[in-house]
Protein backbone atom coordinates (compact mmCIF):
# COMPACT_ATOMS: atom_id res chain seq x y z
CA UNK A 1 0.00 0.00 0.00
CA UNK A 2 0.97 3.61 -0.38
CA UNK A 3 2.39 5.70 2.39
CA UNK A 4 1.55 9.34 2.85
CA UNK A 5 3.45 11.48 0.37
CA UNK A 6 5.49 14.05 2.20
CA UNK A 7 5.14 16.84 -0.35
CA UNK A 8 2.10 18.75 0.90
CA UNK A 9 2.30 18.18 4.62
CA UNK A 10 5.10 19.62 6.63
CA UNK A 11 6.65 16.48 8.15
CA UNK A 12 8.42 18.55 10.77
CA UNK A 13 5.26 20.43 11.73
CA UNK A 14 2.36 18.32 10.50
CA UNK A 15 -0.29 20.48 12.16
CA UNK A 16 0.96 23.72 10.60
CA UNK A 17 -0.97 24.44 7.38
CA UNK A 18 0.24 26.11 4.20
CA UNK A 19 -1.18 29.46 3.24
CA UNK A 20 -3.47 29.35 0.21
CA UNK A 21 -5.88 31.58 -1.65
CA UNK A 22 -9.24 30.94 -3.26
CA UNK A 23 -9.13 31.52 -7.00
CA UNK A 24 -12.67 30.56 -7.93
CA UNK A 25 -15.96 29.60 -6.31
CA UNK A 26 -18.55 27.55 -8.17
CA UNK A 27 -22.08 27.25 -6.83
CA UNK A 28 -22.86 23.61 -7.59
CA UNK A 29 -26.18 23.17 -5.80
CA UNK A 30 -28.07 25.23 -3.21
CA UNK A 31 -25.86 23.69 -0.48
CA UNK A 32 -22.62 22.74 -2.26
CA UNK A 33 -19.93 25.08 -3.47
CA UNK A 34 -16.69 24.11 -5.13
CA UNK A 35 -13.55 26.00 -4.15
CA UNK A 36 -10.48 26.18 -6.32
CA UNK A 37 -7.38 27.31 -4.53
CA UNK A 38 -3.66 27.69 -4.93
CA UNK A 39 -0.88 27.61 -2.37
CA UNK A 40 0.56 31.11 -1.89
CA UNK A 41 4.05 29.64 -2.16
CA UNK A 42 4.58 28.96 -5.88
CA UNK A 43 7.20 26.29 -5.12
CA UNK A 44 4.75 24.43 -2.92
CA UNK A 45 2.14 24.66 -5.67
CA UNK A 46 4.56 23.36 -8.30
CA UNK A 47 5.64 20.47 -6.06
CA UNK A 48 2.13 19.52 -5.00
CA UNK A 49 1.12 16.05 -6.06
CA UNK A 50 -1.47 13.59 -4.87
CA UNK A 51 -3.55 10.66 -6.04
CA UNK A 52 -7.34 10.37 -6.36
CA UNK A 53 -9.02 9.44 -3.09
CA UNK A 54 -6.65 11.45 -0.94
CA UNK A 55 -8.00 14.13 1.35
CA UNK A 56 -7.01 17.54 2.61
CA UNK A 57 -7.80 19.85 5.48
CA UNK A 58 -8.96 23.37 4.66
CA UNK A 59 -8.88 26.04 7.39
CA UNK A 60 -10.39 29.38 7.78
CA UNK A 61 -8.09 30.63 10.48
CA UNK A 62 -10.32 31.68 13.33
CA UNK A 63 -13.23 29.45 12.32
CA UNK A 64 -11.41 26.12 12.22
CA UNK A 65 -10.33 23.32 9.97
CA UNK A 66 -12.35 20.60 8.20
CA UNK A 67 -11.55 17.56 6.09
CA UNK A 68 -12.53 17.30 2.44
CA UNK A 69 -11.85 14.95 -0.43
CA UNK A 70 -9.72 16.51 -3.15
CA UNK A 71 -12.12 16.66 -6.11
CA UNK A 72 -9.68 17.80 -8.80
CA UNK A 73 -7.58 15.27 -10.71
CA UNK A 74 -3.78 15.00 -10.21
CA UNK A 75 -3.24 16.32 -13.75
CA UNK A 76 -4.79 19.65 -12.73
CA UNK A 77 -1.67 21.57 -11.74
CA UNK A 78 -3.25 25.04 -11.74
CA UNK A 79 -5.38 24.54 -8.64
CA UNK A 80 -6.57 22.16 -5.93
CA UNK A 81 -10.29 21.73 -5.66
CA UNK A 82 -12.56 20.94 -2.71
CA UNK A 83 -16.33 20.65 -2.99
CA UNK A 84 -17.92 21.70 0.27
CA UNK A 85 -21.43 21.05 1.54
CA UNK A 86 -22.68 23.68 3.98
CA UNK A 87 -23.53 21.74 7.12
CA UNK A 88 -21.55 22.79 10.21
CA UNK A 89 -19.64 25.71 11.69
CA UNK A 90 -16.55 25.56 9.47
CA UNK A 91 -18.39 24.71 6.24
CA UNK A 92 -20.83 27.57 6.87
CA UNK A 93 -17.86 29.92 7.26
CA UNK A 94 -16.29 28.49 4.09
CA UNK A 95 -19.52 29.24 2.22
CA UNK A 96 -18.94 32.94 3.00
CA UNK A 97 -15.66 32.90 1.06
CA UNK A 98 -15.13 34.31 -2.39
CA UNK A 99 -12.27 34.48 -4.86
CA UNK A 100 -9.22 36.21 -3.38
CA UNK A 101 -9.96 35.15 0.19
CA UNK A 102 -7.15 33.65 2.23
CA UNK A 103 -7.31 30.17 3.67
CA UNK A 104 -4.84 27.54 4.85
CA UNK A 105 -4.51 23.95 3.69
CA UNK A 106 -2.88 20.72 4.78
CA UNK A 107 -2.82 18.14 2.00
CA UNK A 108 -2.61 15.50 0.76
CA UNK A 109 -3.42 12.97 3.46
CA UNK A 110 -4.44 9.36 3.51
CA UNK A 111 -4.25 6.47 1.12
CA UNK A 112 -5.57 6.87 -2.41
CA UNK A 113 -7.43 4.50 -4.67
CA UNK A 114 -4.90 1.88 -5.84
CA UNK A 115 -5.37 2.96 -9.45
CA UNK A 116 -2.06 1.61 -10.69
CA UNK A 117 -3.25 -1.90 -9.75
CA UNK A 118 -6.32 -1.41 -11.93
CA UNK A 119 -4.49 -1.24 -15.26
CA UNK A 120 -6.25 -3.28 -17.92
CA UNK A 121 -9.41 -3.64 -15.86
CA UNK A 122 -12.96 -2.42 -16.44
CA UNK A 123 -14.11 0.16 -13.89
CA UNK A 124 -17.53 0.87 -12.43
CA UNK A 125 -18.03 4.08 -10.43
CA UNK A 126 -21.12 4.70 -8.31
CA UNK A 127 -21.37 8.05 -6.56
CA UNK A 128 -24.12 9.75 -4.62
CA UNK A 129 -24.51 13.33 -3.39
CA UNK A 130 -21.36 15.01 -2.12
CA UNK A 131 -19.74 11.54 -2.23
CA UNK A 132 -19.13 12.23 -5.90
CA UNK A 133 -16.31 14.63 -4.98
CA UNK A 134 -13.49 12.04 -4.69
CA UNK A 135 -15.02 10.12 -7.60
CA UNK A 136 -14.84 13.22 -9.80
CA UNK A 137 -11.10 13.24 -9.15
CA UNK A 138 -10.91 9.52 -9.86
CA UNK A 139 -13.02 9.56 -13.03
CA UNK A 140 -11.08 12.50 -14.49
CA UNK A 141 -7.83 10.69 -13.63
CA UNK A 142 -9.01 7.50 -15.37
CA UNK A 143 -10.01 9.51 -18.43
CA UNK A 144 -6.59 11.22 -18.40
CA UNK A 145 -5.11 7.70 -18.76
CA UNK A 146 -7.96 6.32 -20.79
CA UNK A 147 -5.82 3.80 -22.63
CA UNK A 148 -4.82 2.06 -19.41
CA UNK A 149 -8.31 0.79 -18.64
CA UNK A 150 -11.07 -1.21 -20.28
CA UNK A 151 -14.69 -0.22 -20.19
CA UNK A 152 -15.55 2.63 -17.79
CA UNK A 153 -19.08 2.95 -16.47
CA UNK A 154 -20.16 5.64 -14.02
CA UNK A 155 -23.37 6.47 -12.19
CA UNK A 156 -23.89 9.65 -10.25
CA UNK A 157 -27.07 10.15 -8.27
CA UNK A 158 -28.65 12.87 -6.17
CA UNK A 159 -32.03 13.45 -4.60
CA UNK A 160 -33.27 15.96 -7.20
CA UNK A 161 -31.81 17.46 -10.39
CA UNK A 162 -30.98 20.63 -8.42
CA UNK A 163 -28.78 18.54 -6.10
CA UNK A 164 -26.48 17.27 -8.86
CA UNK A 165 -23.00 18.86 -8.78
CA UNK A 166 -20.48 19.25 -11.60
CA UNK A 167 -22.86 20.31 -14.43
CA UNK A 168 -20.06 21.01 -16.91
CA UNK A 169 -18.24 17.76 -16.25
CA UNK A 170 -21.48 15.76 -16.46
CA UNK A 171 -22.16 17.23 -19.86
CA UNK A 172 -18.70 16.18 -21.02
CA UNK A 173 -18.97 12.66 -19.58
CA UNK A 174 -22.39 12.23 -21.23
CA UNK A 175 -20.98 13.38 -24.54
CA UNK A 176 -17.85 11.21 -24.53
CA UNK A 177 -18.15 7.77 -26.08
CA UNK A 178 -15.29 6.27 -24.03
CA UNK A 179 -17.25 6.43 -20.77
CA UNK A 180 -20.81 5.22 -20.12
CA UNK A 181 -22.07 7.88 -17.76
CA UNK A 182 -25.54 8.08 -16.25
CA UNK A 183 -26.78 10.84 -13.93
CA UNK A 184 -29.82 9.83 -11.96
CA UNK A 185 -32.13 11.42 -9.41
CA UNK A 186 -34.35 9.94 -6.71
CA UNK A 187 -37.22 12.19 -7.73
CA UNK A 188 -37.43 14.01 -11.04
CA UNK A 189 -38.68 17.36 -12.17
CA UNK A 190 -40.60 18.65 -15.20
CA UNK A 191 -37.31 19.86 -16.74
CA UNK A 192 -35.46 16.61 -16.06
CA UNK A 193 -35.24 14.31 -19.04
CA UNK A 194 -32.63 12.03 -17.46
CA UNK A 195 -32.87 8.88 -15.42
CA UNK A 196 -35.03 8.66 -12.30
CA UNK A 197 -34.04 5.95 -9.81
CA UNK A 198 -31.63 5.25 -7.00
CA UNK A 199 -27.94 4.57 -7.68
CA UNK A 200 -27.90 0.84 -6.80
CA UNK A 201 -30.81 0.21 -9.16
CA UNK A 202 -29.06 2.02 -12.01
CA UNK A 203 -25.85 0.09 -11.34
CA UNK A 204 -27.77 -3.17 -11.55
CA UNK A 205 -29.48 -2.08 -14.77
CA UNK A 206 -26.06 -1.45 -16.34
CA UNK A 207 -25.19 -5.04 -15.33
CA UNK A 208 -21.42 -4.69 -15.49
CA UNK A 209 -19.75 -8.10 -15.74
CA UNK A 210 -17.76 -8.69 -12.55
CA UNK A 211 -14.88 -10.46 -14.29
CA UNK A 212 -11.75 -8.29 -14.42
CA UNK A 213 -13.70 -5.30 -13.10
CA UNK A 214 -13.23 -2.96 -10.15
CA UNK A 215 -16.13 -1.09 -8.57
CA UNK A 216 -15.77 2.13 -6.59
CA UNK A 217 -18.57 3.66 -4.57
CA UNK A 218 -18.91 6.71 -2.35
CA UNK A 219 -21.99 8.46 -1.07
CA UNK A 220 -24.49 8.52 1.77
CA UNK A 221 -24.29 5.42 4.03
CA UNK A 222 -27.65 4.05 2.89
CA UNK A 223 -26.66 4.36 -0.77
CA UNK A 224 -23.35 2.62 -0.11
CA UNK A 225 -25.11 -0.18 1.76
CA UNK A 226 -27.48 -0.96 -1.13
CA UNK A 227 -24.84 -0.40 -3.80
CA UNK A 228 -22.61 -2.99 -2.09
CA UNK A 229 -25.55 -5.40 -2.09
CA UNK A 230 -26.17 -4.76 -5.79
CA UNK A 231 -22.49 -5.24 -6.65
CA UNK A 232 -22.31 -8.50 -4.72
CA UNK A 233 -25.49 -9.63 -6.50
CA UNK A 234 -23.67 -8.90 -9.77
CA UNK A 235 -20.88 -11.21 -8.63
CA UNK A 236 -18.30 -8.70 -7.43
CA UNK A 237 -15.96 -10.08 -4.77
CA UNK A 238 -14.94 -8.13 -1.66
CA UNK A 239 -11.53 -7.26 -3.06
CA UNK A 240 -13.04 -5.86 -6.28
CA UNK A 241 -15.03 -3.20 -4.43
CA UNK A 242 -13.59 0.02 -3.01
CA UNK A 243 -15.11 2.83 -1.02
CA UNK A 244 -13.92 5.84 0.91
CA UNK A 245 -14.89 6.42 4.54
CA UNK A 246 -15.61 9.61 6.40
CA UNK A 247 -15.08 10.16 10.10
CA UNK A 248 -14.75 13.21 12.21
CA UNK A 249 -11.07 14.15 11.97
CA UNK A 250 -8.79 16.70 13.54
CA UNK A 251 -5.08 16.03 13.06
CA UNK A 252 -5.20 13.98 9.87
CA UNK A 253 -1.91 12.26 10.70
CA UNK A 254 -2.97 9.46 13.04
CA UNK A 255 -2.30 11.16 16.37
CA UNK A 256 -5.44 12.81 17.72
CA UNK A 257 -7.31 9.54 17.94
CA UNK A 258 -10.87 10.20 16.87
CA UNK A 259 -11.19 8.71 13.39
CA UNK A 260 -10.36 5.13 14.35
CA UNK A 261 -12.50 2.20 13.31
CA UNK A 262 -11.00 -0.56 15.40
CA UNK A 263 -7.24 -0.46 15.02
CA UNK A 264 -7.39 1.48 11.73
CA UNK A 265 -7.32 5.24 11.38
CA UNK A 266 -9.41 6.60 8.53
CA UNK A 267 -6.96 9.49 8.09
CA UNK A 268 -3.84 7.36 7.57
CA UNK A 269 -5.02 3.79 6.89
CA UNK A 270 -7.90 5.11 4.76
CA UNK A 271 -9.97 6.90 3.67
CA UNK A 272 -9.96 4.36 0.82
CA UNK A 273 -10.76 0.81 1.89
CA UNK A 274 -11.61 -2.29 -0.09
CA UNK A 275 -14.77 -4.02 1.00
CA UNK A 276 -12.53 -6.82 2.21
CA UNK A 277 -10.58 -4.39 4.46
CA UNK A 278 -13.83 -2.85 5.63
CA UNK A 279 -15.39 -6.14 6.64
CA UNK A 280 -12.28 -7.00 8.67
CA UNK A 281 -12.93 -3.94 10.84
CA UNK A 282 -15.16 -3.95 13.93
CA UNK A 283 -18.69 -2.92 13.05
CA UNK A 284 -18.62 0.67 14.24
CA UNK A 285 -19.44 2.85 11.27
Amino acid sequence: MNTIPKSGINARMPLLPEKASITRVIQETPTVRTYRLVFDDPEMMAAFSFEPGQIGQMSILGAGESTFAISSPPSQKDYIQFSVMKTGVVTTAIHELSAGDRVAVRAPMGRPFPVSAWKGKDIVIAGGGIGMAPLRSLLMHLLDRRGDFGRIQAVYGARTPADLCFAGEREEWERRDDVEFIATVDSGHADWSGRVGVVPGVVESMSPPAANTVAVTCGPPVMIKYTLESLEKLGFAEDQIFTTLERRMKCGVGLCGRCNVGAKYVCTDGPVFSLRDLRALPDEL
Partner: peptide
Amino acid sequence: CHCFNIFDEMSGDREGERCR
Protein backbone atom coordinates in the same frame (compact mmCIF):
# COMPACT_ATOMS: atom_id res chain seq x y z
CA CYS B 1 -4.04 8.58 26.86
CA HIS B 2 -3.05 11.22 24.35
CA CYS B 3 -6.06 12.08 22.17
CA PHE B 4 -6.44 15.76 21.46
CA ASN B 5 -8.75 18.35 20.03
CA ILE B 6 -7.71 21.22 17.78
CA PHE B 7 -9.48 24.57 17.87
CA ASP B 8 -9.01 28.23 17.02
CA GLU B 9 -9.24 31.10 19.49
CA MET B 10 -9.57 34.64 18.18
CA SER B 11 -8.46 37.71 20.08
CA GLY B 12 -10.20 40.58 18.36
CA ASP B 13 -11.13 40.00 14.73
CA ARG B 14 -7.68 40.21 13.10
CA GLU B 15 -5.61 37.71 15.03
CA GLY B 16 -5.82 34.52 16.98
CA GLU B 17 -4.20 31.20 17.68
CA ARG B 18 -4.71 27.57 16.87
CA CYS B 19 -4.49 25.39 19.96
CA ARG B 20 -4.78 21.81 20.89
